[in-house]
Amino acid sequence: MKRPRKLKAARAPREAGDGRRAFVTPEGVDLRLQVGAYVDRLGALAIDLMIVGGVLVALTLLILATFFAAWRSHDELLARALMVVWLLGSFVLRLGYFIGFELHGSGATPGKRIMGLRVIARDGRRLTADAIFARNAMRELEVFLPATFLFARGSGVDGALTTLGGIWTGVFVLFPLFNRDRLRLGDIAAGTLVVKAPKVKLLRDIAESAPVTLNGAAFSPAQLDAYGVKELQVLEQVLRGGDRRTMAAVAKRIRGKIGWEGPADVPDATFLNAYYAGLRHRLETGLLFGRRRADKHDVLAQEKT
């Protein structure tokens, strides 16, 4: 049926549930992007629609005012010209707003920027203008068309059609929920992907300030072999979180597990810091020799030491 070479490559390295997606740059490095959450995207769309709607209402009011002035003075040509301006203006605004902003370097409309999202090409190449056009032209079908269905009640359209519009909207609006990459129809047609593009600060390395020994006592290799990478990262989170009660509990667990007999008057934070540094050193040395100990249950990696 299909030749899923590309798809397979995109799916294989993804862990379940963390919403990340393999994304290989042309240089061959996997960036593991965070797929934009559905809620975020709805929020972004709502913001954008409010902006477009606001401008449209302003434009309409302005033109209506001029239109009635023209009507009263029987200036038919001006009235007709205004109608054309309104039709073209609203059309250009509706399509141009999204395309214009997404074409601009940052790849995001104001709504998306507020929600920390941006559009990229799914294949990792440059985001092209035609892709942006395609994904936004599809929006006509997904959002604007059903919207006209829903608001059409006043003009003699029967309820069945409105219901149909509702179902239609439901199908397309919920469509992103049924695939892992949260693709809407426009994303499929354009080969694009909406991802979360957060800004992360470089935190200091907590192993840097760690004491090597605790009042003269150091950890033995056996004590450092108690845990693996997973526990190390949990410990990192605990240390960065800095919550005293959690640290006390964790320190107690570790002391019990490794059978710590060194000085007991060391503060929990210092103890944990030192243990973190020692454990990381041990595990990273293992990494350099090609042994990655995933967690404390992973004994295979330890066999040789």
């Binding site: 593991r32 370097g105 390395d205 907590i206």
Partner: peptide, 23 residues
């Protein structure tokens, strides 16, 4: 094994990637 460092580099590379390969 410094997770914070890897997170930072991922975010930085992603931002730079968007910039270098943006429309």
């Amino acid at each position: 094994l410094d997770q914070a460092l890897i997170d930072y580099l991922e975010a930085l590379s992603t931002r730079a990637y968007f910039f270098v390969y943006g429309a």
